[in-house]
Write a protein that binds this DNA or RNA. Sequence first.
DNA 1: TATTGTTATACTCTATAACTATA
DNA 2: TATAGTTATAGAGTATAACAATA
Lengths: 142, 142
Amino acid sequence: MSDDDSAAFARDVRMATFRLSRRLRAQRAVDTVTDSQLAVLAALLYGGLRTLGELAESERITAPSMNRTVNCLEEAGYVTRTPDAEDRRRVLIELTDDGRRLMEETQRRRDAWLEDALGELSEGERTALMAAVPVMRKVAER
Amino acid sequence: MSDDDSAAFARDVRMATFRLSRRLRAQRAVDTVTDSQLAVLAALLYGGLRTLGELAESERITAPSMNRTVNCLEEAGYVTRTPDAEDRRRVLIELTDDGRRLMEETQRRRDAWLEDALGELSEGERTALMAAVPVMRKVAER
DNA sequence: TATTGTTATACTCTATAACTATA
DNA sequence: TATAGTTATAGAGTATAACAATA
């Protein structure tokens, strides 16, 4: 690929990603929890993460930013904080029953719009998108 | 595809999109202008758009939101506002020379990180991503 | 009355700097 | 001294509601 091509490719990827991201954000079906908050709940439930630092690192945001998100979740009763007995600088963050329920319910309902949109694609388009998902993840985690 | 599969697919697409989007935002090389602002400059230069409403519609955000972005660009000297002589409710937004220069320079430099990352992919991964870009755009514009 | 743009206000997400408590 | 978490503060991006000017 020439330099010009690879620059154009990068621009295309960036613009397509931002547009889709903004569209998805606007279309979320469940308003009780934001995307960032839901990602934290998912990391707690599936990712086996437990401390603020781990959560911040996994989402690649700063600790103060993650702290604010966790504060929102805690105020809403979806997570609890408990000091770690072994290293008392650490704080364990855990899902409450409400948090677990919200996660499950939200995951069921939230992507209705996107599912619909994906359902309107041709088989080939769906396949193309599916093949790109792991690549997007790889680039994001670089 | 089963209901479960299509739900999982939607979730994968959403999460991969958000992660990549956040990573790209964090990695931008040029700090004088944000992504949203750059998109407006690009729409003015390439898209042939001129009024606030057109810009808001093309980015699928509300007029007050676009107004704020345009305010930032105007304060920074990258665009001007001129009342439209033919319909005085309208305001024409135009690039200044500084705005045009910033656009060109920024587009040259900004995707260096992403280009690098894409260069590290295998040929197959690059092809997969390239094939997905128009699909992402289609879904975003739905 | 309808349309275009604007202001006021508010909320989320993100950051950096500075602080506390613990190791 | 170094690490984990927190608070204070600030800025960007988004929204809705209410308003002004013009058609």
